[in-house]
């Protein structure tokens, strides 16, 4: 039985490198001989049984398409919440993350979110743009996550959410919380190729996705040479020492 992945609105989320995250899940399963099916779901699809999926991916879209995506997401809100309650892993990035929170703002309007994350997003001032490094309690050896952010929204977490990590480089380097984890739902503002450069996070999501129907599965080790090289390079460019942070040599 294949791992079933639902890729939401791919035609709307192709400018921030989101395809890279789905590709990372796809490859890391196929390299291990794990069967995988990716279903691309677009505007107007029946809400259906999203709980039938093991992993749902929602990326970032241009503001121009927020309204249309939001209307469609809201129509499916119940199905998305039920899927996450049922243990389906959800990864939401940028505007996708913001719209799945409790409330969000954009374009001078305030909206009720889908409510997967206990998080509010306010929209103010300049866009936050730049490379970031996080440390995450979800990960070890290394516990770093490298990425790039480009967004206007500022997200504040409620008590029912943990941050994905805390910023140690970029955005003021002040231990600020980044992203959110609520049960099996993961949200972040780190856009584009988040998972390829953070293979430990990709594998964490795959393990959690497998857990729903297959229980605890130990994933086969992969040769993550290129992955850790890119991860190490991102750390070095942020002025950090990969060796001190326990990053594999690659």
């Amino acid at each position: 039985m294949p791992l079933k992945v639902c890729y939401l609105y791919p035609e709307f989320t192709g400018v921030w490198g989101d395809a890279g995250n789905v590709l990372a899940i796809r490859r890391r399963c196929s390299w291990r001989g794990l069967a995988l099916e990716v279903y691309e779901s677009n505007i107007g699809d029946e809400p259906g049984d999203l709980a039938g999926f093991d992993l749902i991916y929602l990326g970032g879209t241009e503001d121009r398409y927020r309204q249309v995506i939001y209307s469609d997401l809201f129509r499916r809100a119940e199905a998305i919440r039920l899927a996450v309650e049922d243990g389906t892993v959800l990864l939401a990035v940028c505007s996708g993350f913001e719209m799945l929170g409790t409330t969000f703002e954009y374009d001078a309007g305030s909206y009720a979110g889908v409510g997967v994350f206990d998080a509010d997003t306010v929209c103010c001032g300049d866009r936050i743009v730049g490379s970031v490094v996080l440390r995450s309690e979800l990960l070890s050896s290394p516990d770093t996550i490298v990425g790039f952010e480009n967004h206007a929204g500022r997200t504040r977490l409620g008590v029912n959410c943990l941050p994905l990590g805390r910023v140690i480089s970029g955005r003021g380097e002040n231990q600020q919380a980044e992203g959110a984890v609520c049960g099996t739902a993961y949200g972040t503002h780190l856009c584009g190729p988040l998972l390829p450069r953070n293979p430990h996070l990709a594998d964490l999501l795959i393990r959690k996705a497998l857990k729903k129907r297959f229980g605890d599965v130990k994933l086969a080790e992969l040769t993550d040479d290129r992955e850790w090289q890119a991860h190490r390079q991102a750390l070095r460019r942020a002025g950090l020492q990969p060796a001190e942070l326990d990053v594999p040599a690659g």
Binding site: V15, W16, G20, V129, C191, G192, P193
Partner: peptide, 8 residues
């Protein structure tokens, strides 16, 4: 500065 586009 952002090279995310190579994944598109």
């Amino acid at each position: 500065r952002d090279i995310s586009w190579i994944w598109d």
